[in-house]
């Protein structure tokens, strides 16, 4: 009797796990979401310098895997460079976001227009 209880449960769990593991992702996520979470959860604990360092490493890893970085990745990186006063890199990252995802054009153009105003 016990086997009868176990078997369907094991089958269901296996199916759920397989479905969760087998599906390849569209993007190489790296620490993009995690870094943003940590920067909100403990402001100051994750400096823009450290975020830039981690995201640039993620980007190299994604390139080596031939996988795109997710939507928003380059825009966020550009925003971090802007915070560090590195306007050339900020501009380059924003333009990379726009080239990778044309859907971002209106917003990115607005950010680019504001980039050197201050």
């Amino acid at each position: 009797m016990r086997r009868v209880v176990w078997l369907p449960a094991v089958l269901v769990l296996t199916a759920v796990l397989a479905a969760g593991c087998a599906r390849p992702t569209l993007y190489s996520w790296g620490q993009y979401e995690e870094l943003i979470y940590r920067s909100y959860a403990a402001p100051g604990a994750v400096s823009p310098e450290m975020q830039v360092e981690n995201l640039e490493a993620d980007y190299q890893k994604a390139r080596s895997e031939n996988k795109p970085v997710p939507p928003g990745f380059h825009a966020h990186l550009g925003y971090l460079y802007f915070q560090l006063g590195k306007l050339d890199q900020a501009q380059q990252e924003l333009e990379t976001e726009k080239a990778q995802f044309p859907e971002s054009a209106v917003f990115i153009d607005r950010l680019l227009a504001n980039l050197r105003k201050n």
């Binding site: 569209l26 943003i36 939507p71 928003g72 976001e97």
Partner: peptide, 11 residues
């Protein structure tokens, strides 16, 4: 994003 959408950078 994994569902196939462009998602604006939240932060």
């Amino acid at each position: 994003a994994e569902r196939g959408y462009y998602v604006f950078p939240i932060a």
